[in-house]
Structure formats: structure tokens, C-alpha cells
Simulated assay, not measured.
Amino acid sequence: MRHIKVGTRQSSLALTQTNWVCSQLESIYPGLNIETEKIVTKGDRILEVTLSKVGGKGLFVKEIEQALLDKTVDFAVHSMKDMPAEMPEGLIIAAVPEREDPRDVLISRDGRTFSELPKGAKVGTSSLRRAAQLKAARPDLEILPLRGNIDTRLRKLEEEGLDAIILAAAGLSRMGWLNRATERLSVDICIPAVGQGALAIQCRADDEDMIDLLAALEHQATRLEVRAERAFLGKLNGGCQVPIGGYAEYHDQTVSLRGIVGTPDGETLLKDFAEGDNPEELGLLMAEKLLEKGARKILADVREELKS
């Protein structure tokens, strides 16, 4: 077995995810020697502003992808929701393991659920997707920016006078902290980010040995769901400056997909639902449906604003 290097962000969650992948591979291939290479990304360096103001795509993956292209690492472990719809030539997502719960969760300071939060409650999140949907469901809430790793956000819940924060169930679960969640938010209230809860294991497209090795971690149903969601995102050409969510489920040879596009202020929220047996076609169909409903103007307005 060759000596293998895996690239990852250096946050506790990223390392936990990467260690899980490595342990799965080592259990399948005894004697495998994997070394972890911690890489700092642009999204990790800029913490004082919201992601929507940082701009650009691939804020948490570009430096790691460059390490793959430079052959300083052999494969990488990413959170799928951090992956742009398009990736650099020469790289592929070689495996998509089984997905964790993709939903968002509410963690409140006093154990109140979303509907029980008092009028004017302060809720922390820097995700435009989450903020827009929370505002649509509860216009009375005050949404405040919240950046940092999971443990930092949990600490800020206590230190910054917030009534609640919103996090991904998957990250809490992987860290063993899901007991901190007050409520798992229904997708009727908050549709998750595209790819949320799934991992993307990436390598070079010409590294056949690595592709064969990583294939053992593939989960077909999760791959189909992610293909539909990412096709939807790719058609919209969306980044973190626009509230976009996509949630696919695979059952009985059929993929269902919920999609959402909103204005950053949450005043307009476009939703739709579709199902089919071809994930990419389903994602494109969902995008077209929302574009016709008004998403085209929302996206154009946001891009025009970014130019000014």
C-alpha cells in the first residue's frame, strides 16, 4: 500500500469528518497508511464578515483543491455543501458516503422551540438561506450574524445575548453534540443547503488507484440525491450571496426535490417541488420552475448589486 496524504480544513468538525473517512478506509484496507494535511482556506481566514460579503465560490475548498492539483495531497474530504456546482478540471468527487440528517436545528438558550421563541427574539446565523426562511416564517425575529466553528457558535449563544442559533444537524451529530439541539427544523420551515449533511471525497480524475480505493465508501442513494441538488444549484449559478436551498430524497427508484430561492431580506420566498428518476434532469427542472416564478429577477438584482 502506498503512503497516502489527505487534505482537510483544520476545524474540529473537518478533522472529525476526515478522521471518520480515514478510519472507514483503514478498516476496509488493513495496513493503510494515511497522513492528514491541514489546510487553511479563505473562508477560515476571514471571520469578521458574513460569507455573503466575502463573495466568490469555493471559499472553503479552493486551497485544498489546489493541493490536489499540485499533488501535495492524494485525496480530500469536504462538506458537500461547501462544494461549488463546478469544480476544477482534473478533479472528481470519487465517493459520496451515506448522508447524515440534512436538516437544520435550532438551539435555544432556554429550551424554547422555534414557535415558542418570544417576539423579537435574537437568532444567530450568517446564512442568507436560513435567515430568509426564518424571516418568512417569523417576521418578528431579529436575525444577527454568527460566524465561527460549531464550538465558537455555541459559546456565542451564551456570551452575546442571543436567544437561539441555527446549525446543521449533521455537524452536531458528527461532533457528538446533537443533544444540544432544541428542535430539528422541518423542511417546511427551513429547506437545507444543497448537499448539507453529505461529504464529498475528492481526488484527481487520473488517479485510478485512488478512485478504486475510495469507491468502497460510496452510497448510491446519497449520490443520487446530491446529483439532483447540485444540478439545481448549477443551473441557478448560485453562490452565498443568494438564499438558495435544495433538498432531495431518494425512495423506490424515484428522487423528489424541494427547491427554494429567496431575496436576502426574506420578503420574497419562491418554493417548488418535483420528482423524477433522472437526478440531473430533476435539478434542471426545479431550477427552471423557480426561474419562471421570479428567481431570474432575484438573481439578476443581486448580481447587479454586487457590481455596484
Rank of each mutant, 00 (worst) to 15 (best):
H3T: 08
V6S: 11
S12Y: 11
T16P: 08
T16M: 15
Q17T: 02
Q17F: 09
N19C: 05
C22Y: 02
Q24G: 03
L25S: 12
S27L: 02
S27K: 10
I28K: 13
P30L: 11
N33I: 08
T36R: 14
K38T: 07
V40C: 12
G43M: 06
E48C: 02
L51E: 13
S52G: 08
L59A: 03
V61T: 10
L68I: 01
T72N: 14
D74F: 00
A76D: 02
S79D: 14
P88C: 01
V96N: 10
D104N: 15
V105W: 15
T113K: 14
F114R: 08
F114Y: 10
P118Q: 13
G120D: 15
K122H: 15
T125E: 08
S127F: 07
L128M: 11
R129W: 08
A136M: 06
R138T: 09
P139R: 00
L144A: 12
L146S: 06
R147E: 15
G148Y: 11
I150L: 14
D151Y: 10
L154N: 04
L154P: 02
D163T: 01
A164Y: 08
I166Q: 10
L167Q: 12
G176V: 12
L178E: 14
A181D: 13
T182C: 13
E183L: 11
P192Q: 04
V194R: 00
G195A: 07
D206P: 12
E208W: 01
A216E: 10
E218C: 05
H219R: 01
T222S: 11
R223E: 08
R227P: 00
A231F: 01
K235N: 00
A248S: 07
A248P: 00
Q253I: 00
T254A: 13
V255Y: 10
V255C: 15
L257Y: 04
T263S: 12
D265L: 06
L269D: 09
G276W: 04
E280A: 03
G283K: 03
M286K: 06
A287G: 07
E292L: 14
K293C: 04
K293Q: 07
K297R: 13
I298K: 03
E304D: 09
L306K: 13
